[in-house]
C-alpha cells in the first residue's frame, strides 16, 4: 500500500465512535457462554473476524473496557457478541449474568483488519478453533453460508466436553447441509459414550489428517488460547502452509504467571 495513501486515510480518519448498544436478547450457548444480540444504532457494518471494544461505566464514573469478537456475519442486522464468563473476570460475568434485555452499554468498532475473511478473500478456508476461539471463525462460516459461497471450508474445533461446544446445533446443521463446511470436533476431556471422533489435544498428525497438504490459495485462521495457537500454527507451517497465510488470534494467559 502506498505510504501517501495510508497517510491520507490516517489524516482523514475520524475516531471510531462510541455507540450505545441495547441488549435485545441473551442466548445461552453453554453453561459458561452466552451470545448477546445487540441493537446498535449507527453501526457502520463489519467483516467477519473483527471485534469490538466494550466500555462499561459505573454510577460513580468508574470504567472498564474489554474487547470481544463479533459472532455475527457481515449481513446481520444485529451485532452479536459471544462472551465466555471468566470466573475471576470483571466484565464478562456482568455481561453474561447480570445484563437484562433493554439494558444498554457502550461499544465501538469494528476493530481489526487482518484476522478477517469475506467471500472475496478466497480459500480454501481452513479454520482451527480452541474453546471460545470459535467465535470469530463462526462469523466467517456464517458469512460464507449467508452469501452462498462455494469456497471449501473446514473447521477443526477443540473443546473440553460436548457441553462446552458453542454453536453445536448450528454447526451440525451447517456441516450437514449441501456445500456446507466440514466440521471436525476433538473432545479433550469428556466424551459422549460411543464417541468415535478425536479425543485428544490437537497435534501435527490431526492437522495433517483434517487439512492435508495446503492448496496454494488456502487461508488458515487459528483462534484459541496461546498454547493451542502455537501448536496449531506451527503444525500448519510444518504441513507446508505459507506462514503469511496462517493468521492467528489468541486470548488468555500464557501459562506463565
Amino acid at each position: 500500500m502506498a505510504r501517501t495513501a495510508v497517510l491520507g486515510r490516517l489524516g482523514a480518519a475520524a475516531p471510531i465512535a462510541w455507540r450505545l448498544a441495547e441488549l435485545v436478547e441473551l442466548v445461552p450457548e453453554t453453561p459458561r457462554v452466552a451470545s448477546l444480540l445487540l441493537s446498535v444504532p449507527g453501526w457502520p457494518g463489519h467483516t467477519a473476524g473483527q471485534h469490538v471494544d466494550v466500555r462499561l461505566t459505573a454510577q460513580d464514573g468508574y470504567q472498564a473496557q474489554r474487547s470481544y469478537s463479533i459472532a455475527a456475519p457481515a449481513e446481520s442486522e444485529r451485532v452479536v457478541l459471544t462472551v465466555e464468563r471468566l470466573e475471576d473476570g470483571e466484565v464478562s460475568p456482568f455481561l453474561v449474568d447480570d445484563l437484562r434485555a433493554g439494558d444498554r452499554f457502550e461499544l465501538r468498532g469494528p476493530i481489526g483488519g487482518y484476522f478477517v475473511w469475506d467471500e472475496g478473500s478466497g480459500g480454501p478456508l481452513q479454520l482451527v478453533a480452541g474453546g471460545s476461539g470459535v467465535v470469530p471463525l463462526m462469523a466467517m462460516l456464517r458469512h460464507r453460508a449467508a452469501v452462498g459461497s462455494d469456497v471449501p471450508a473446514t473447521l477443526l474445533y477443540s473443546a473440553r466436553s460436548p457441553e462446552e461446544v458453542i454453536y453445536r446445533e448450528e454447526l451440525d446443521r451447517l456441516g450437514g447441509g449441501d456445500g456446507g463446511p466440514q466440521v471436525v470436533y476433538t473432545l479433550t476431556r469428556e466424551r459422549p459414550s460411543g464417541w468415535t471422533g478425536y479425543d485428544r489435544r490437537i497435534d501435527g498428525e490431526m492437522l495433517a489428517e483434517v487439512f492435508g497438504r495446503p492448496d496454494a490459495d488456502a487461508m488458515a485462521f487459528v483462534c484459541g488460547p496461546t498454547r493451542f495457537v502455537e501448536v496449531a500454527a506451527d503444525g500448519l507451517v510444518a504441513l507446508g502452509y505459507d506462514p503469511s497465510r496462517v493468521r492467528t488470534e489468541r486470548f488468555g494467559p500464557s501459562g506463565r504467571s
Binding site: 474489554r66 484476522f115 500454527a233 506451527d234 496462517v246 493468521r247 492467528t248 494467559p253 500464557s254
Partner: peptide
C-alpha cells in the same frame, strides 16, 4: 492508563505463526 486493566499474567498476541 485509561481503559486498561492490570493483569498478572503475560498474555500473548501476534498476527501469525511464531518464527
Amino acid at each position: 492508563p485509561p481503559g486498561q486493566y492490570r493483569t498478572d499474567d503475560f498474555p500473548v498476541l501476534s498476527a501469525g505463526p511464531t518464527p
